[in-house]
Design a binder for these strands. Structure first.
Length: 255
DNA sequence: GTAGGGTTAG
């Protein structure tokens, strides 16, 4: 199109870029977009742009956009707000992320997930779990994204009891485990030395992702069981799953 | 219906 004047076209293309980790392309498009005087970025434009800033660690650009946003009133938008929180977290500005989260006038599950993930990324796994409990006190129902991060936090803390508690709660609720949750469980049980449970969750996965394979191999590696690592690598080949560099490092280190 | 933020291994 010579003169795209429909803003949703720009927003859609920018979102497409960021969904596929093409952050440079997203920011290039945003810059081009700003050259059109009759087009103004709106509440759908900013989340993609801000996410691209986070993905590229463009802290200063992100901060500049944040400053512009304060004047527009778009800070009231929950998606704009939570994308800023996520951007600051990705740029390692955790304090800024947390204070911004606290200032948000309204919250939803996704923005709780942002702040929990923020603590997880910063290595503050205890605080991640504290916010996991806190969101429930505020009567937000954790979704699969929340659960994934919570289980991963238990794994990092080697808190097997809390991890099993969350796992049992999941089973009791009757919900099917998606591949993110299952991988996090395999990882958590593996770190805690419960390879039996790790294997059990793994075998129940209808479609075993490469992350699940890697988590399981890593679990056996941690306890020094090289034979099982190599065996799993072979099984992976037999089942037609392509190993990643991570798989090879985890497996070949034991030869 | 059509445009936005949050998740797992290393």
């Amino acid at each position: 199109m010579k003169n795209p004047c429909e803003i949703s076209l720009w927003n859609g293309l920018m979102a497409g870029y960021t969904k596929n980790y093409m952050y440079v392309e997203a920011l290039d498009l945003f810059e081009k977009f700003l050259h059109y005087p009759y087009l103004k970025p709106d509440s759908y434009t900013y989340p993609s742009v801000i996410k691209a800033c986070g993905g590229l660690c463009r802290f200063l650009l992100g901060k500049m956009i944040h400053t512009c946003l304060i004047k527009t009133g778009l800070m009231m938008d929950i998606v704009v707000g939570s994308s800023l929180v996520g951007m600051y977290a990705k740029c390692n500005a955790f304090e800024k992320a947390i204070s911004l989260f606290n200032e948000m006038p309204e919250k939803d599950v996704a923005c709780w997930n942002t702040i929990i993930s923020c603590y997880y990324q910063s290595g503050n796994f205890k605080e991640a779990l504290r916010y996991f409990s806190l969101m429930r006190k505020f009567e937000f129902e954790p979704d699969s994204v929340t659960i994934t991060t919570a289980i991963s936090s238990c794994g990092r803390l080697l808190d097997l009891n809390r991890g099993m508690e969350i796992h049992e709660e999941l089973i009791n609720s009757g919900s099917l485990l998606d591949s993110f949750i299952s991988s996090a469980l395999v990882d958590m049980y593996g770190r805690c030395g419960h390879l039996g449970k790790a294997l059990e969750v793994f075998e129940e996965m209808p479609k075993k992702t490469v992350v699940a394979w890697n988590s399981l191999i890593s679990g056996y590696g941690l306890r020094g069981d090289s034979i099982s690592c190599i065996r799993l690598l072979k099984r992976m080949y037999n089942e037609g799953v392509k190993p990643t560099l991570t798989t090879l490092c985890l497996s070949l280190i034991h030869i």
